[in-house]
Every structure is written in C-alpha cells, then in structure tokens.
C-alpha cells in the first residue's frame, strides 16, 4: 500500500488522534478509583476513539465509507448501552460507588 496523497495523510492523522483517545481511555481505566468511574473513562474514550479511527480509515479508503459508516452507527448505539447495563448490574450486585451522595441506594426500596 502506498500512502502519499493529502487525504491519506489527513486520514492517518485522524486515525492516530483516535488511537490517542483510546490510549487516554486506557489510562483512565487504570487510574480511576472505582468501577463506575472506570466505566465512564472506558466508554467515552473508546467511543470517540473508535469513531475517529473509522473516519480516518474512510479518508484513506473512500470506497469503504458506507461499511465504515454502518460500523460507526452500530458502535454509537451499542457502546454506551453496554456501559449502562454494566453500571446497573454493578449497582444491583452491590458494588458501592465512591463519594458521599448515592441517590440510587436511597431509593433502592422502591426499585425491584
């Protein structure tokens, strides 16, 4: 593969920006103190990171754009969704969040 044109360079730059966001998310995953904060760091960074990776790929290979767009749409729906299900599961399994205010535990009697 020969990468030379302007679009290729731009695409590769967008790609590496996405990878940088992924790495920052990974750093958040290691550093954050409890599971909820880790989910936060994980989900935001991986979503934007992967989106930028896909946009960068579409700039390098314009003929793949439609399929990349479908992957983007799919990820934008499922990625936050799995994080929400995971956060809910963690709370129901009894993992207490760090911090003083937890309105969810306070209302737990009303929830099944």
């Amino acid at each position: 593969m020969i990468l030379s044109g302007f679009l290729d360079t731009l695409g590769a730059f967008v790609f590496v920006t996405g990878a940088a966001f992924l790495a920052l998310g990974g750093l958040g995953l290691v550093r954050m103190p409890d599971v909820y904060n880790r989910i936060q760091a994980g989900t935001k960074a991986t979503t934007l990171g992967t989106l930028l990776v896909l946009v960068g790929t579409a700039l390098i290979e314009p003929s793949w754009a439609i399929k990349l767009l479908l992957i983007m749409l799919f990820l934008m729906f499922t990625n936050p969704l799995s994080s929400q299900v995971l956060a809910r599961a963690a709370h129901r399994a009894g993992v207490r969040p760090k911090g003083d205010a937890d309105y969810l535990s306070r209302d737990m009697e009303d929830l099944t």
Partner: peptide, 22 residues
Amino acid sequence: ANLSLAALVMKPSLPISPAIVK
C-alpha cells in the same frame, strides 16, 4: 467529554468528586 476526561486522567492528583444523582 473526551477533552475533559483526558485533562482529568493526566492530572497526577486525579481531582474527582463522584456521586449518583437523580
């Protein structure tokens, strides 16, 4: 969201104040 998260995780002191709000 990503820029603020990036700024947050790169600070050595990790200045967070988490809570679950309604």
